[in-house]
């Protein structure tokens, strides 16, 4: 059994962790809350130009990413001709991440030659695309704001390489 003084120190440390964890100013939707742990299958985020045809095209891009049998979840965002793609790789296939990334990039560039793709398998990029998708599907979000966030995610991906 722990002494009361030790219990006090431990509970202070725990309290500090709990307070710090509340520091985030990110608004999280139902999908982004569990995006790191399970398959969420998020809707593609279309920032501009918004049209039914473009939505269908994004769905086709998503299907293309999912057709690689090592992937089990994909998040897509598009702004103009720039497309941000992130996917989750099956646990035992994570040793071949680089190979899978180049495979997905080549496949997308071949099937959709008119777009510029930024491909990543990083969980953070995946999470941010899910958050962006939730943001764009929420009423009252401006295109400018979403485009700014899109650029921030691309920048974050470029920092990785």
């Amino acid at each position: 059994m722990l002494k009361p003084s030790r219990m006090k120190s431990l509970s202070t440390a725990l309290l500090l962790i709990m307070v710090l964890s509340g520091c985030s100013n990110e608004e999280s939707g139902p999908q982004s809350k569990k995006a790191l742990f399970s398959k969420v299958n998020p809707k593609p985020a279309l920032i501009a130009p918004v049209s039914m045809e473009n939505r269908k095209e994004l769905e086709r891009i998503k299907q293309d990413v999912m057709s690689v049998n090592t992937n089990y979840d994909a998040a897509i965002a598009r702004k103009g001709k720039e497309v941000l793609v992130s996917y989750k790789v099956k646990h035992f296939k994570r040793f071949q991440m680089k190979k899978i990334e180049s495979q997905v990039t080549k496949k997308l560039e071949k099937d959709f030659p008119s777009y510029t793709f930024t491909v990543s398998s990083d969980y953070k990029i995946f999470l941010e695309i899910v958050r962006l998708s939730e943001k764009t599907n929420r009423p009252g979000t401006s295109t400018k704001e979403a485009a700014k966030r899109f650029n921030q995610i691309v920048k974050l991906k470029e920092e990785l390489t």
Binding site: S21, S24, L36, F37, D122, Y123, K124, L127, L156, L160
Partner: peptide, 15 residues
């Protein structure tokens, strides 16, 4: 790691 990815601006590599 998930805590740092989720609440802060850390990626999988930097977390």
């Amino acid at each position: 790691t998930y805590f740092y990815i989720y609440f802060f601006n850390f990626t999988e590599q930097t977390a």
